[in-house]
């Protein structure tokens, strides 16, 4: 469904992607693991058209999307949930959702505000609250809900557990599990291996802008050596 081939990109001076290749199949949850600054966010931003790749290609649903503007990519059904949430703090919950609203598309789970509120019950209780007066966990829920309003067939989820208390992270894992069972394809970036293990089918490990490992979560769990080399050092 999402095929990234030989992607190279430059972002500022320090973060450079070299030869990133990955594949996400329909309905899969795939984790992109790596430490801070390894290139996870840059990979996502490049796929999303927010950073222009210097070479390589991104295919989504059989179409080339690399080089297109981010709004075009979003309109093709690829949703993006940024790492730092980027809630519109002056807008209410309902208005935040409105910004994300797009026409429904075939072959993707359709969402209504009410359906989203059943997945994110907290949000239903604060429809008219400005985004700036929500807690970190609530904002994280809202940023995901906002992206779902575009009825994406796949989403890029950048470090959803970042900065959240352990107890909220557990909730988040359940919610993402629920989205997976709706048939949503997810590419998830994480530093938290425990969190990824709860959700993902397969994982890639990125380090210094290169993919260093690819395998199922079970393989990764068994591979002490890889974990030691890329995730803990």
């Amino acid at each position: 469904m999402l095929d990234v081939a030989d992607l190279h990109s430059h972002y500022g001076r320090a973060h450079i992607l070299a030869d990133v290749t990955l594949h996400v199949g329909r309905g899969e949850v795939v984790a992109l693991l790596g430490r801070n600054g390894a290139g996870k966010s840059t990979t996502f931003k490049t796929i999303m058209g927010l950073v222009k790749p210097t070479s390589g290609s991104v295919m989504f649903n059989g179409e080339t999307i690399s080089g297109a503007g981010s709004h075009t990519i979003c309109q093709k059904g690829l949703g993006y949930v940024p790492e730092d949430r980027r809630i519109f703090t002056d807008l209410t919950v309902m208005e935040n959702l409105e910004v994300g609203r797009q026409p429904e598309r075939e072959g993707a789970p359709a969402w209504t505000v009410e359906k989203l509120f059943s997945v994110f019950p907290n949000l239903a209780e604060m429809r008219n609250r400005p985004g700036g007066r929500m807690s970190g966990g609530e904002q994280q829920m809202l940023t995901i809900a906002r992206t779902l309003m575009g009825h994406p067939s796949a989403i890029l989820l950048d470090e959803p557990s970042e900065g959240l208390a352990p107890v909220i992270v557990e909730q988040m894992a359940q919610t993402i599990g629920a989205l997976k069972s709706e048939g949503l394809t997810v590419l998830l970036s994480e530093q938290n291996l425990h969190f990824a293990t709860l959700l993902a089918d397969r994982a890639y490990i990125i380090e210094k802008g290169r993919i260093r490992y690819e395998g199922t979560m079970a393989d990764l769990a068994a591979d002490e050596e890889v974990r030691a080399a890329y995730l803990t050092v």
């Binding site: 730092d84 969190f195 974990r227």
Partner: peptide, 11 residues
């Protein structure tokens, strides 16, 4: 080993 990431930009 791997851990919860910290609150870099908690909003």
């Amino acid at each position: 080993a791997a851990t919860t990431t910290a609150d870099a930009a908690a909003g």
